[in-house]
Design a protein around this nucleic acid. Structure first.
Lengths: 132, 132
DNA sequence: TTGAATTCCTACCATTTTAGTAGTATAATA
DNA sequence: TATTATACTACTAAAATGGTAGGAATTCAA
């Protein structure tokens, strides 16, 4: 029941971008150095964030990344879902997570409740909450 | 961020024992049949529950398992911790989980908060809540 | 007293996931 | 045109997951 490095690093990248935001694009090299994470691994993670539409990017000499929106507009839950996948604690709660025991299972509603408190928490926090 | 089969099956075993409680010991064979889980795998899981002191056991012909306490005395959190290990969403929150970035890390308190809501939820529910 | 039913214990193993590394192509600019 | 950056894809070692398998010890019933 652990968040993987994908989700943890993604949060650190996003906070780094939020803190160092400005006119210029911020290169992965700089983020990697500040965060002490391999630039090559961060590439893959930031690619997920980019595909989710969270970033504005520029290639080439002065290229890099910027947040596409203001920090307060990013729910942490959305950042984690984009990188970790869904946050459901069990497969029976996922989109197509069918379990034929669902109706007789005495644990189902407990897991549903756990899923709810997790979702509620991660969606109540924004990137702005983290950086201040 | 998924609960493994160890924790999920453990909950089902405990609810099964709670529902079918009585004078007699309940054999793993019966539980395995009712829950449609391999008896050999359940052996390992119930061994964890036994070592945690949750069960009373009897070997031999009419042997099996019984709950050691009343259903309402088992916090679900304790059952999960005995089988899943700790429930912390990140390693920086675990007992000896040292991270030298802890003081500067902008995500630490977010993870701490997530850990808190999870703990609060799983410790607020008992086995009795599941079976009624 | 012996055989069947049960828990108890440990070793093994295939598959999947995790956490990266590596190489190369593409783009922009000084 | 060399340099600096993103973008994309393939590969891989190590760990975790989800079991299987075998046998020892214990108890009771016939």
């Amino acid at each position: 029941m652990k968040i993987s490095t994908k989700g943890r690093y993604a949060l650190r990248v996003m906070t780094d971008l939020a803190v160092n935001s400005g006119e210029k694009y911020i290169s992965l090299k700089d983020i990697a150095e500040r965060q002490k994470i391999s630039i090559k691994y961060l590439e893959q993670i930031i690619s997920l964030l980019n595909k989710a539409g969270f970033l504005v990017t520029a290639r080439g000499y002065t290229g890099g990344y910027k947040l596409a929106k203001e920090a307060k507009e990013y729910k942490i839950g959305d950042i984690l879902r984009a990188t970790e996948g869904d946050l459901n604690p069990t497969y029976c709660l996922t989109e197509n997570g069918e379990c034929e025991r669902k109706k007789v299972c005495k644990t189902y509603s407990f897991w549903k409740g756990l899923d709810d408190v997790i979702s509620q928490y991660v969606d109540s926090k924004t990137l702005e909450d983290l950086i201040k």
